[in-house]
């Protein structure tokens, strides 16, 4: 049997379409905590990245923090947190947020720092406040890069959130972990296909957001 046959069998089985372990429920679960992890990571990474980028200082410290966060093994951290804190949302969120913060933080910093200086100088010379300069001059130009950092983080979170099932959590990882335990390859392939589909949908969402949010004057130069 090939991967495609497994997938066909999985999606063809009507039992997989409803209930606690049904596809819709698992997809919603997966999306919810992926979104939550991304939101927390953005709430931490964006302000810090944008502000340090605006002041063009602190890049080295930021790089160290990002490297340290990247080096934390997501899976190990998950198991450790589960061992310490028991079952719950927090032990799942900590490793996912640690995974998502570095790309958000580093690209936000780089994006703002590398904005062409003359327009910023002109804005300051015209009497714009620093907040306005950051939000109305630097951010619109940095937006494509900032979004790409968020996109990388989002795809990683969606893809990695599968391991949450190892600590008895829901989401699409259930199919993979359970399938592996039960030697049920239909389930594994089905779960993997769904995660890939979700990750691609995430890419599409970010592409659409960039289309709408990025000014045509900026889009062209990227």
């Amino acid at each position: 049997m090939t991967v495609i046959d497994f997938a066909r069998a999985f999606f063809g089985d009507s039992a997989h379409w409803h209930g606690e372990d049904g596809i819709p429920h698992r997809v919603v679960q997966h999306l919810l905590y992926s979104a939550e992890a991304l939101a927390i990571a953005a709430a931490i990474g964006l302000p810090v990245g944008l502000l340090t980028g605006h002041h063009r200082r602190g890049g080295n410290t930021l790089a160290l923090v990002a490297t340290a966060a990247r080096a934390l093994p997501t899976f190990g951290l998950l198991v450790l947190m589960f061992t310490w804190l028991g079952f719950g949302l927090v032990p799942v969120m900590i490793p996912l947020v640690a995974l998502a913060v570095p790309p958000v933080l580093v690209t936000a910093y780089e994006a703002v720092r590398s904005v062409d200086p003359p327009p910023v100088d002109a804005a300051r010379g015209m009497g714009m406040s620093e907040t306005r300069i950051l939000l109305q001059v630097e951010l619109p130009v940095a937006l494509p890069l900032v979004l790409s950092g968020l996109r990388t983080a989002a795809v990683q979170v969606v893809s990695t959130a599968t391991i949450a099932a190892y600590v008895s959590f829901g989401g699409l990882g259930r199919y993979i972990i359970d399938g592996l335990a039960q030697k049920d390859y239909e389930k594994v392939v089905g779960g993997a296909t769904l995660v890939v589909g979700l990750a691609l949908a995430t890419l599409a969402v970010f592409w659409a957001v960039a289309r709408i949010a990025v000014s045509p004057g900026v889009r062209r130069s990227h």
Binding site: G173, G179, V188, V196, L203
Partner: peptide, 18 residues
């Protein structure tokens, strides 16, 4: 490469077991 990157590592491992 973007699509490949989206495949969860665990799923990737499992699919290769065969």
């Amino acid at each position: 490469t973007t699509v490949l990157y989206a495949v969860p590592s665990l799923a990737f491992f499992v699919l290769l077991i065969d």
